[in-house]
């Protein structure tokens, strides 16, 4: 093989395929958790989505309308994550609210990975992990027991932290009420829309061992919420 041919072969080997490119957004060289679905869905879905986004961006710079881009993202994410997951149940447990919402003590629990400053849940015994670090530890989190953080409902915005390796935290880092609506729940309680906002609010990293969560941990959390006075609960995933 001539030198020229060898160089050409090396360049060919170094070329990234489209499949490698789309996969790189999911815990790869281009990690972006808002777009990690590019790997989860089909190659055609990724192709169609990126083509549409570029086209819509061309419109955006002329008309300023972001709505079609948001809709395209939601549509593509929905398709990529379509179908049931690993858990399907036929039974439908259902508890009846015994009094109006306006007279109910309502708890808030989210799977978003929020916690109060100074109360780091210390996953794997490690204090002060960064978002960048936990993004690289998703397989470890997926096998571990979730830890429930208790966040007093008087916790200020500046004392509210969020860290989760499974989703794009940008929005809720800017405004916790995007997924941990402590301020809104406090307002609704003050206005009498709900009877009481139970303190503390709860949050954990939903990326965790599902079997342990189902069998032991979630029932224990429900008992804890009940002991804390909760008569109903608002549950918010990522």
């Amino acid at each position: 093989m001539s030198t020229d041919n060898r160089n050409s072969a090396n360049e060919e080997a170094a070329k990234e395929t489209f499949d490698e490119f789309r996969s790189s957004f999911s815990y790869g060289s281009r990690t972006d958790l808002l777009f990690k679905f590019l790997k989860s869905g089909s190659e055609q879905l990724a192709d169609d989505f990126l083509t549409e986004i570029l086209d819509l961006t061309g419109d955006l710079i002329d008309n300023g309308d972001t709505a079609p881009i948001v809709e395209a993202i939601v549509r593509a994410q929905s398709e990529a994550y379509s179908g049931p997951g690993n858990f399907e149940y036929d039974s439908k447990p259902f508890a009846i609210l015994d009094q109006p919402v306006s007279e109910s003590k309502i708890a808030l629990l989210t799977t978003t990975g929020h916690f109060a400053h100074g109360d780091d849940p210390k996953p794997f015994g490690m204090d002060g992990l960064t978002q960048e670090q936990v993004v690289k530890m998703t397989s470890e989190f997926g096998k571990a027991d979730p830890v429930l953080s208790e966040i007093p409902t008087t916790t200020s915005v500046n004392e509210t932290m969020v860290r989760h390796g499974g989703y794009d935290i940008r929005a809720t880092a800017a405004d916790r009420n995007v997924s941990l609506p402590i301020d809104r729940m406090n307002e609704l309680a003050d206005e009498g829309v709900i009877g009481e906002f139970v303190s503390p609010a709860y949050s954990f990293v939903g990326l965790a061992s599902q079997l342990r969560l189902r069998k032991e941990i979630a029932p224990a959390w429900a008992a804890k919420a009940k002991a804390g006075g909760a008569q109903a609960a608002v549950l918010i995933p990522i």
């Binding site: 939601v74 979630a218 919420a225 009940k226 918010i236």
Partner: peptide
């Protein structure tokens, strides 16, 4: 999926719950 397990546990404990979520994970 975590929220599904938590919601079922709350209902079984007698606490009515509502899940508020993006339709992306509906299925």
């Amino acid at each position: 999926m975590s929220v599904g397990h938590v919601a079922r546990a709350f209902e079984e404990a007698g606490i009515p719950s509502v899940v508020i979520m993006s339709k992306v994970f509906k299925d």
